[in-house]
Design a protein around this nucleic acid. Sequence first.
RNA 1: GUGGUUGUAGCUCAGUUGGUUAGAGCAUCAGAUUGUGAUUCUGAGGGUCGGGGGUUCGAGCCCCCUCAUCCACCCCA
Length: 453
Amino acid sequence: MKPTLPQGTRDFAAPTIRKREYILDTIKTVFELYGFEPLETPAIENLETVTGKYGDEGDKLIFKILNNGLDNPAKHRQAKEDFEKILQGKNVKTLTERALRYDLTIPFARYVAMNYAQLTMPYKRYQMQPVWRADRPQKGRYREFYQCDADVAGSYSLINDAELADIYLTVFKRLGIDIELKINSRKILTALAALCNGDNKMMSITVAIDKLNKIGMDKVKEELEKSGLGPRQIKIIEDYLNIRGSNEEKLGRLKTLFSNNEDGRKGIEELEFILNQLTINDSLLTIDLTLARGLNYYTGIIYEVKAKNAVMGSIGGGGRYDDLTGLFGVPNIPGVGISFGVDRIYDVMEELNLFPDKMQKGITALFFNMGKEESKFAFQQMQQLRNNGISCELYHEPAKMDKQFKYAAKKNIKYAIIIGSKEMQEQNCVVKDLAKNEQQTIALTELQNYFTK
RNA sequence: GUGGUUGUAGCUCAGUUGGUUAGAGCAUCAGAUUGUGAUUCUGAGGGUCGGGGGUUCGAGCCCCCUCAUCCACCCCA
């Protein structure tokens, strides 16, 4: 058979892994710096844990796992009946009861709901694991990709929300990516829906205005019309979308607009708090009133990160969800979190050439294989170096030096160590610096010192 | 889920209106070179042209189906 990869997945070879690790390490370091603790959860969750949390579109993208044992003849009739239900779009436990995790937030919420009694609140955890989505792959979109999440459970304090925004700024500064960090509040969107008497159309409204930058005002209005809003309602939304200016100016306009709306006032307070807490200028953190975010569970502040100078969807997103564990029967535990899209960050950094040069590691030394006796002797020398923490290897078979040099060059090895019969007799070796193309003869007793000095 | 793109050697790609034995560069291997590497020279291996079916005297090229790929929409990291 011809070997292939499943759609939307990739193998990662050494050079790629080094760069990915660089990104992961940077994020992890910052997470730890801000007091977050690691958590890992299984790749598979119960299907009912993940369904109904991401909206209708989201549910369609969940990878479901077919149950084992369906080929048992005793179950055939039942299985066929159940499959009819699947065709009608229902989930049937007897056919599938597990799914690959779709994100890290819901597993986190499940974990908190199961363990809240033991956790020190507020519980600050970070998680860096792959997630799976049955999307059609395209640029910056994979079916298996890493998310790095930091969430705080058990605190309503907006200090958390502000800190998470600060983590975004810190991580991307360390990675050298120029970003646009956009912020809004779901409460403001709720208020907008109420203001135009479209409470029940909140979803369609947010989906439509989210596209403003992409498709323009006219198309947004078209879309609003399609979802059943009248001219007067659309006018209100248009006025809202026409709010421009600095963060301060936007807040001013919002205050007038929502002076009689409780949700609106709260949303404005949230935004004001974040901006005030971080005391940074508009260019770093921008209020974006069109920012909506699709995931159903957000209730307060929402974030989205885009890379400047690169054509790529959002490389990070998050927000506050005030009753996430409520879905699992544990009420009154609020949460707020952010997510980094490692694979998209990688693509952006590759596109903008932002990875540091000396990223690729090579081992320190290659012992040349000069023959049977010589290689046995070299092997002993090599083991001594290894015992002292110097990474090295012995060429796997006797070969022409030409070949061994090329091998060393390809593998980014820094030194070649040559021990032939002459060197064996004289108890020394030739050490060649492959980058400088310089070599010297060194007594075997001095070899360790040469590398550890 | 919808629409489009591309698929030829390990990799990047040429391949004329359908016409003999499908090519190049890089990579690999061997030799010039039995102790000194990114250079050079010589030679070699490597292809069911994504897969299946059809049209034709004849298909890498045309038609149908299928798979994969990339891109856009939807949605999202």
